[in-house]
C-alpha cells in the first residue's frame, strides 16, 4: 500500500474543506456566547451582594477545573434528566453552549483584568458627574476596559477554535468527525487526519501572528503594561 495516497487526498479534500466551515461556524457561535456570558459573569462577580459574588466565583473555578469533554457529556446526556430545568437539545446546540460556557469563565477573567486597569479616578469622576450606575458602566468603564484586552480575547478565540474537534464525541459533523467518517470507509486515516491537522495549522498560525501584532500595537497605544501584561502571562498557557 502506498504510504501517502495523493489522489485519494485530493479526492477527500473538498469534503473536509466544506466541514471546515461548520467548524468555523461553531467557533464563532460559541465565542459569541462566551463574550456575552463572560461579561455577565464578570459583572456578577463584582456584585455588591456577597452571596452572588461568591457563587459566581465558585462557578468559574468549577468550570475551569473540569474538562470540557466531561462538561460536554454532562450537558448533552445528563442535562435532559435534570428535574424541572432540564431540557433536551441537539448535539450542535449542546456543543456550542458548552464551549460558550467553558470559555466565558476564561473571558470573564480577562474582562476583569481590563476593568481593574481602568483608573480609579474614572469611577470618581463619573460619580461626581452624577452618572447612574448603568451609565457609568456603559459610557465610562467598559469603553475603556474592553479595547486593551481585545488581543487577549483573540487568543482565546484561537484556543476555542482548537477545541471544536471535541464536539465529534457527541457526533457533531465538524472537521475531525468528517475526516474520521471518510477514513473509515477505506480504512486509511493517514490522508484525512493529515489534511485536518494542516488545515488547523493553516488557520490558527496566521491568526495567532495577527493577534500578536495587535497585542504589540495595543500595548504601545494604551501603555497599561503592568497589570494587563501580568494577566497575559498567566493566561497564555491554556
Amino acid at each position: 500500500m502506498e504510504i501517502f495516497n495523493w489522489s485519494y487526498a485530493a479526492e477527500v479534500f473538498p469534503t473536509i474543506f466544506r466541514a471546515m466551515f461548520v467548524t468555523l461556524g461553531i467557533t464563532l457561535a460559541s465565542f459569541a456566547v462566551a463574550l456575552v456570558l463572560g461579561l455577565i459573569l464578570t459583572l456578577l462577580r463584582r456584585s455588591p451582594v456577597k452571596i452572588i459574588a461568591y457563587l459566581t466565583y465558585g462557578f468559574i473555578e468549577f468550570v475551569r477545573g473540569t474538562p470540557v469533554l466531561v462538561q460536554l457529556f454532562f450537558v448533552y446526556f445528563a442535562w435532559p434528566l435534570v428535574p424541572v430545568i432540564g431540557f433536551e437539545m441537539s448535539a450542535m446546540t449542546a456543543g456550542i453552549s458548552t464551549l460558550g460556557i467553558h470559555y466565558s469563565t476564561y473571558l470573564s477573567e480577562i474582562y476583569r483584568s481590563g476593568i481593574e486597569s481602568v483608573d480609579q479616578g474614572q469611577w470618581e469622576a463619573s460619580r461626581a458627574l452624577n452618572f447612574s450606575k448603568a451609565k457609568t458602566w456603559t459610557k465610562i468603564i467598559l469603553p475603556q476596559a474592553v479595547p486593551p484586552v481585545i488581543p487577549m480575547l483573540g487568543n482565546y478565540l484561537i484556543v476555542l477554535f482548537k477545541e471544536t474537534p471535541l464536539l465529534m464525541a457527541i457526533s457533531v459533523n465538524e472537521m475531525l468527525m468528517t475526516a474520521r467518517n471518510l477514513g473509515s470507509q477505506v480504512f486509511s486515516f493517514v490522508e484525512v487526519y493529515t489534511i485536518v491537522g494542516l488545515l488547523f495549522l493553516l488557520l490558527s498560525y496566521p491568526s495567532s501572528l495577527f493577534v500578536g501584532y495587535m497585542e504589540r500595537r495595543m500595548n504601545t497605544r494604551y501603555m497599561r503594561k503592568a497589570k494587563v501584561q501580568k494577566m497575559k502571562k498567566e493566561d497564555v498557557i491554556s
Binding site: 482548537k162 471544536t164 474537534p165 475531525l176 474520521r180 487526519y193 491537522g197 488547523f200 490558527s204 498560525y205
Partner: peptide, 9 residues
C-alpha cells in the same frame, strides 16, 4: 497551532 485531539488521533 493544531488541536490536541487531532494530534492524538
Amino acid at each position: 497551532g493544531t488541536s490536541l485531539l487531532v494530534q492524538l488521533f
